[in-house]
Design a protein around this nucleic acid. Structure first.
Lengths: 338, 338
DNA sequence: AACAAAAATACAATCGATTGTATTTTCAGA
DNA sequence: TCTGAAAATACAATCGATTGTATTTTTGTT
């Protein structure tokens, strides 16, 4: 029961070998003879020695840890990105600390502070929907550690961002609805302070324009894109009477709307076609199955982590400012087919 | 760009005040006068001071951090448990480090080592499906820090476990199928080395016995309960011809089976009724909607975290050995109604 | 056997914050 | 104004590991 805190000094005195040699031995330094290394390893195991990373990290000023800030781990898209990040980090011998902002800027601020205080070597962040200023990132940045944005890009100094071409994906999704004969297309959009949602909205509008469809500002519902907000928006649509399609900036809200519309006897896609965004597992299961945009989530995580690790290794700034745009694809399912 | 590493010594020398006083001031100790505290706070802000938790934690031998090991964050059940844990920890001023074992014992071992090396104050763990021995937990335990199990209970010393009554929940679920006239009930079960899956299987068997239905060992498919395994088990069922119901130890496998059975023209629930476990969001959306067991996930997280934090505060062992059993409920939906 | 070079090990400072003890300052009351 | 207790601050050791430098030991060569 007594807390066993064996340090290198315990090994040192047990064997009458200096602690510096013990440290080097445990780190497999070439400066220690094989024989001594073996003796030390044996004694360490015998005493149940466990390295104290706090001390080591304090001394070396490196933690071999990257922090990941994610709006919400329960979203399939994000948990898959994390899987990609972890795989890459794991291979490189780095630890990953996952933190949820829950779309709150206050929490995001606290998380950055904590990560900074714990001296992570780098941060991967998808900013919260409330994040419109970047002061809280500044103090971290000033510390000299790299930041890479993923999914939701962000103009912060010249930091790298890994994302898809949201404009194009939305343009294509909207055009798909138009080409299947829809004219009155409603858009569920997210906070316009976030570049990502601006881009998705622009894509939607430009597709309409290209096909000479008037852009009607009433045909847009801006929200946090939760399931509830999807239902709310669907109610709005019911009042408008003439809507024949929905393009939602995420699946969650699209699914909320579908559930509600079905209870109201609206036929999907006959009366209203629906297209979502993210390819959430539910989108495949819901009936009718939901047409949506598939993003390379796992790959996005891998690439973002690779870039961050690169920047951690080369402290130079020259790996920065390379915004990476990955390909996405529209998965056409039954919710948009006539 | 230069990395700003301001320490209390920089503040100390800038103001000609001893670093011990600076430290006390920043921690709001009563031993420092208000005037000095203000002066120090101002200078700290001016210099952009950021505490170094590594140093602080090393000295105090506390990290104010708890580690959470979870099989997979993408499962809705687990991410909701985490939400509960985080809420509780957050209120208590504790940080949470989330780690995924991905159901691998090797990863779980590494995670425990890392958490130990980083001196977390306590661990919340839901063991992986591969975990049948607890040696890796022992070294952590020997260190004197508390461990609390959640969801998947575990006989390890007399550590607390927070879970539901899996036996009873499965018994009830199976009985529900029997009462709606099913006789040939197939069971998707998980690794029998894990207590949780043993209990679910026992509940299933005992319900059959109670109703004088013969237990047929062929009516059981043991696996990792992935969607793929669900499909595999469904194929097995197709060969058996006479199965009229499935009780799956989780929703994921049940959903896989449903998808497959539908493609084979099997009607659910008319030909085969299905009951799952976990109340995954998909279970509500899939058609027919899936009857399943709802667990108090968020609450489970809150309670597990509360107990762990209590054990961290009272280093005594007397809060241990209180296994907490929470209530679950069977949510009856269309997949099991005649 | 002698000696230089190489290998192995020891010494000691350090990372940044905390904390028990010692010293100085302040201030009330006589 | 002086005294003593209380308040404020300074001193110095410490947490556990790392690392540059110094010292000792080993090895190979002539």
């Amino acid at each position: 029961m007594k807390s066993n805190k064996i340090t290198i000094h315990d090994i040192s005195s047990a064997l009458n070998i200096d602690s510096s040699t013990v440290s080097r031995a445990l780190n497999d330094s070439p400066r220690v003879s094989k024989k001594t290394k073996e003796k030390i390893a044996k004694k360490a195991a015998e005493l149940g020695y466990q390295r104290n990373s706090l001390a080591s990290n304090l001394r070396t000023n490196r933690t071999n840890t990257i922090g990941v800030i994610v709006p919400r781990i329960s979203r399939n898209f994000f948990s898959t990105v994390i899987a990609g990040i972890e795989e890459t980090a794991y291979e490189a011998g780095f630890n990953v600390v996952i933190c949820q902002s829950l779309e709150s800027i206050d929490r995001e601020k606290k998380l950055i502070e904590t990560l900074l205080a714990n001296r992570v070597d780098g941060i991967l962040i998808s900013i919260s929907m409330e994040t419109t200023s970047y002061e809280h990132l500044q103090s971290y940045y000033d510390h000299g550690s790299p930041i890479v944005f993923y999914d939701r890009p962000c103009h912060f100094h010249n930091c790298t961002a890994v994302s898809i071409d949201d404009y194009k994906a939305s343009f294509d999704a909207t055009e798909h609805l138009i080409q299947s004969g829809r004219k009155n297309i409603f858009h569920f959009s997210g906070p316009q302070e976030i570049e990502l949602y601006q881009n998705r909205k622009r894509g939607y509008k430009d597709a309409l324009k290209k096909h000479n469809i008037e852009v009607n500002e009433d045909y847009c519902h801006e929200s946090g894109l939760s399931e509830k907000e999807g239902i709310k928006a669907a109610k709005k649509i019911m009042n408008l009477k003439n809507i024949d399609a929905i393009f939602s900036a995420n699946d969650t809200a699209a699914i909320g709307a579908m559930k509600y519309l079905k209870t109201q006897g609206i036929r999907i896609p006959e009366d209203i076609a629906v297209v979502g965004f993210n390819n959430d597992p539910i989108s495949e299961v819901i009936e009718p199955s939901l047409t949506t945009v598939n993003q390379p989530d796992f790959k996005m995580g891998k690439i973002a982590a690779t870039i961050l690790l690169g920047q951690i290794k080369n402290k130079k700034a020259d790996t920065k400012d390379q915004s990476i745009v990955l390909n996405s694809e529209l998965i056409i399912r039954n919710s948009s087919i006539n």
